[in-house]
């Protein structure tokens, strides 16, 4: 039962490895956006520190959103998405596999590079640990929700901008919880409540969103 899913995962990862620039672009975007913030608001370390959770999270969220346009569009253009509908597996699981592969390629590198940017913004080690944990739980949520928008804009002119309008409002809860977790540690309280809620949200998204995405793919290919 899982062999087709493994085949799909391997295919997507292989393709990503053959074109590493796609994944690197996303990480590059993340780094550049964060680097621009001090230029806009001044170099005061304390001030930057207080803004760091929000800045890092908003930058990560935008990076994920930009990367999502590619999630289905390549498969849509060459016709492999159509063939996926004929694969004898539930479309929800196939979609989930693709999202997982996409997260490994784009989401995970963001988590891994985040400490470097956090140091630039003067976060302390314990805060960085929470930041990474929050991003580790949070970026899959962003990918899962964003996949719905990616599917709904398949084949549309100006799809990239439209994804932003459709998806960014839905990113409010993970943003609040994720940035809030780091903020809580900075103010000397525990991040546990934030992280638990974020975890609950990820479990919910994991079970609910792939079906919505699958429905959206079917509709857009209809």
């Amino acid at each position: 039962m899982f062999r087709p899913l493994l085949a799909l995962l391997r295919r997507d990862l292989t393709l990503a490895l053959r074109r590493p620039q796609d994944a690197l672009t996303v990480v590059g975007f993340f780094v550049v956006v964060v680097a621009l913030f001090p230029l806009g608001i001044g170099p005061d370390p304390e001030f930057l520190r207080s803004l760091a959770p929000g800045v890092l999270w908003v930058a990560a969220l935008l990076a994920v959103m930009l990367s999502l346009e590619r999630l289905f569009s390549d498969d849509y253009r060459d016709g492999t998405l159509e063939q996926l509908l004929l694969v004898p597996e539930p479309m929800g699981l196939l979609v989930l596999t693709k999202i997982f592969a996409h997260w490994l390629i784009t989401g995970l590198p963001l988590v891994l590079i985040s400490p470097l940017l956090a140091i630039q913004l003067n976060l302390r080690p314990d805060e960085i640990a929470i930041l990474m944990l929050a991003l580790l739980i949070g970026t899959p949520i962003l990918s899962l929700i964003g996949a719905i928008g990616a599917a709904l804009t398949l084949g549309l002119r100006g799809g990239g901008v439209l994804i932003a309008l459709l998806i960014l409002p839905l990113y409010a809860p993970p943003l609040i919880l994720g940035a809030g977790a780091v903020d809580a540690v900075m103010h000397g309280s525990s991040a546990q409540a934030h992280l638990s809620l974020l975890g609950a949200m990820m479990v919910f998204a994991l079970f609910a969103t792939p079906w919505a995405t699958a429905a959206a793919v079917r509709i857009m290919l209809d």
Partner: peptide, 29 residues
């Protein structure tokens, strides 16, 4: 923003039935 997204998606898809179905998914989400 959610309303605007719904209307923008509806407007972006030419085929009426597809537009209705796609924005229905968005409204439910």
């Amino acid at each position: 923003f959610l309303y605007l997204g719904y209307m923008a998606l509806h407007a972006a898809i030419d085929d009426r039935q597809r537009a209705s179905n796609a924005s229905a998914v968005l409204a439910m989400v």
